[in-house]
């Protein structure tokens, strides 16, 4: 295809990305580096701050009077967990009833994460439908591509929200520290650490939102997902998006050696992370009697 067509495809996917994903990398990095004016995020770094911030999780707008007293100053030079000092987490709790309420709080937080993930699946679905040719594929194949691709896409979308110390949640209004997530009871404490490890490495590639849009489309259009009925048209679509991505990276990152190859390599790592994630969710279903998995996530993870 002509270079002009490939550039038009890149622009189209970037516009769809901006339309369907509420928190871009540009916005997230501004928040994380403290360049977001006075709107520093609420920081959750222990059970007490989780309790205080719980009502705002998944709110698009935190009321300013509730929000301000708990935020880190943007003047500290960005959001990190380093300034917060030692984090006791739940380890300092000895009282049985306190432990019980901490357990319930962790479970409620996990359910909030599920709701946001389900909403994320909706966003990714809308983005997928905007990929030229996607909605003309066999409907069963559209379902298969989303079933197998959506968690990979959500993990990639998480990377810009993370730094080595924590992650933005709640549309960028809350920063949750990595240490706090590690202090949760098993297996909750095991869920995010692999994503942090992946994200810190992925972020060194320094993709911007327009690169991300193309990369997400490449992931969605994977012709090797199990059970696909008509692989050829999917591979053809992916081939075009791959050409567009390669050209985009050459133009956007002229000095980054082998960026295209490095990025494609990440797709292999992603598959392992998703496999491990699904195993943890299956483990949770066994160990947490009160846990109910969101029906949309159940659909996706069943027989994955």
């Amino acid at each position: 295809p002509e270079a002009a067509d490939l550039r038009a495809l890149a622009r189209h996917l970037y516009e769809a990305y901006l339309k369907y994903f509420p928190l871009t990398k540009a916005k997230a990095r501004a928040i994380l580096s403290g360049k977001n004016g006075d709107n520093a995020p609420f920081v959750i770094h222990d059970m007490k701050s989780l309790m205080e911030g719980e009502q705002f999780i998944n709110c698009r707008q935190i009321p300013i009077q509730e929000h301000q007293p708990q935020t880190l100053s943007a003047g500290l030079g960005g959001v990190t967990g380093v300034h917060l000092g030692p984090d006791c987490g739940i380890l300092g709790m000895t009282n049985i009833s306190e432990q019980g309420s901490a357990d319930a709080l962790e479970l409620r937080f996990f359910h909030s994460c599920q709701s946001r993930s389900a909403e994320g699946v909706r966003e990714v679905t809308e983005f997928a439908k905007s990929i030229p040719g996607f909605i003309n594929l066999d409907l069963n194949d559209q379902v298969t591509l989303l079933k197998y691709g959506v968690i990979e896409v959500l993990i990639i979308m998480m990377a810009p929200l993370m730094n080595k110390d924590g992650t933005l949640i709640s549309y960028g209004q809350i920063f949750m520290t990595r240490e706090f997530l590690k202090s949760l009871r098993k297996p909750f404490c095991q869920m995010m650490e692999p994503k942090f490890e992946f994200s810190v490495k992925f972020n060194t590639l320094e993709l911007d939102d327009s690169d991300m849009a193309l990369f997400l489309a490449v992931i969605i259009l994977s012709g090797d997902r199990p059970g696909l009925l008509n692989v050829k048209p999917i591979e053809q679509l992916q081939e075009t998006v791959l050409h567009s991505l390669e050209l985009q990276l050459k133009l956007n990152h002229p000095d980054s050696v082998q960026l295209f190859a490095k990025l494609l390599q990440k797709m292999t790592d992603l598959r392992q992370i998703v496999t491990d994630h699904v195993h943890l969710i299956q483990l949770l279903k066994k160990t947490e009697v009160d846990m109910c998995l969101h029906p949309l996530l159940q659909e996706i993870m069943k027989d994955l």
Binding site: S115, A118, E119, V121, R122, T125, K129, I135, L139, N140, Q142, V143, T144, L146, K147, G227, H294, P295, L296, E299, I300, K302
Partner: peptide
Amino acid sequence: LKEKHKILHQLLQNSTSPVDL
């Protein structure tokens, strides 16, 4: 496959109307 993935299918089919998630 569509039968086993009703919500996903619904998300794919309904372009504008929000699905109750």
